[in-house]
Design a protein around this nucleic acid. Structure first.
Lengths: 222, 222
DNA sequence: CTTTTACTGCGATCGATGTTCGCAGTATCT
DNA sequence: AGATACTGCGAACATCGATCGCAGTAAAAG
């Protein structure tokens, strides 16, 4: 049953011995700063320990593995979404506001896009986020199940859209140039046709596509 | 411009010297078999090399980094989606069929859920997949831009749904039990209310929720 | 107050991994 | 025939996550 207590269930302090010199929040903050500055790969146990003025082994008094440290970082990032700008009554506008805040948070911490979001036990901030999202959906007339599904879809959608947004700025990863090269091989006629669209859509600002896609998906789902 | 040729652009063979003893397809297949058997972490350069009967250094004649090897693996997995079961005329049914095939592929290669899908240049199989999806959408009356967006949303959605599906079977990660514990703290009233829903939805088979969510999202988006 | 117990901090270190170097061997070009 | 540009790969390097064990310390037990 209780197979192995995660970071959130474990007691923060032993019943004996000296008081811990560090705490999870400070450790997570140090790691988060490192990731913001130099990416997720810069978050090594040694680097985090050095930022805290200690050795790598000390961190293992607070965290069982590096993955747990990343869990802490992710939950700390989720904590930056406060979600006050949620208008009551209009659930779509509320969820869109929440999605926008998520987007801003992800743009601030792009390393979060790298961490594969395998469904782990929710941290406290992630749980608060879920609670707020459910609160926004209270005015919607749907299944509880559908509400959970909508929130899950929303999160995956936000990550995907921000990924596309940042990748476009970084390099021409899957940009039109690369696609054109793939279409030019003769095979893939539909791709070629799509790229030769005589009526291309007008250009958009960065946030416009985000709002449009999120709104359409949510209205269809709920 | 041509900053650094990826695996797909690079020539498969030098103009001089002996013929390569291995090739990308065999290397990818060996790595894929390892990942299927023991997870993505088991795909080390040494293990893949050993499976091919050689040393780790040899692989670097074919692949610049381990990440490139994973790219190869991912594209090989995409190649398993042939997409013949796509009825013409009905784009929704066609995309749903494609999504179902993607789901089956992901269930066969769960390690693909761990690789963070940062938008890289598409491999040949991924490009074929994109072409087929565009072909299915030909009968839909929408923007070309919307079609691309729908395909992107569809992919992210499939990954998310399969993640939820497999995590549920593995452990109770974010299962009802963990949620109930979080709701019991007194804060998070909406979460508590949602869990105490007097009219819970009837249980579903594994593929039913998938079909339902995918269909609703797509109808809303396109 | 003394002894016991259970904790904390952390230097030293282990095993494993991704990657590079350099050299011997080989097929193609001049 | 010689030069050239490749391939194969053993050996090694840097770095990482994680562990071990011991000294120090605070709380519980007697």
């Amino acid at each position: 049953m209780e197979q192995s207590p995660g970071v959130w269930e474990r007691p923060r302090r032993g019943r004996r011995g000296p008081a811990p010199e560090h705490d999870l929040d400070r450790i997570a903050a140090a790691a988060l700063a490192l990731a913001d500055a130099d990416g997720l790969a810069a978050v090594t146990m040694r680097a985090v320990a050095a930022a805290l003025g200690t050795g790598p082994a000390s961190l293992y008094r607070y965290v069982r593995t590096r993955d747990e440290l990343v869990e802490l970082m992710a939950d700390a990032a989720y904590g930056e979404i406060d979600g006050e700008a949620a208008p009551a009554g209009d659930w779509l506008a509320g969820l869109l506001a929440l999605a926008r805040e998520s987007r801003r948070m992800l743009l601030r911490h792009p390393w979060l896009l790298e961490v594969a979001e395998t469904p782990r036990p929710l941290g406290p901030n992630a749980a608060d986020y879920l609670d707020r999202a459910l609160g926004v959906l209270e005015s919607a007339e749907t299944d509880t199940r559908t509400k959970f599904e909508a929130i899950g879809v929303l999160n995956a959608l936000v990550v995907m859209l921000v990924r596309a947004e940042t990748a476009g700025a970084d390099r021409d990863a899957a940009g039109p140039a690369a696609l054109a090269r793939l279409a030019a091989e003769g095979r893939r006629p539909h791709l070629a046709a799509a790229l030769a669209d005589p009526a291309p859509a007008p250009p958009e600002g960065p946030g416009e596509a985000f709002d449009r896609v999120v709104s359409r998906v949510l209205t269809g789902l709920v």
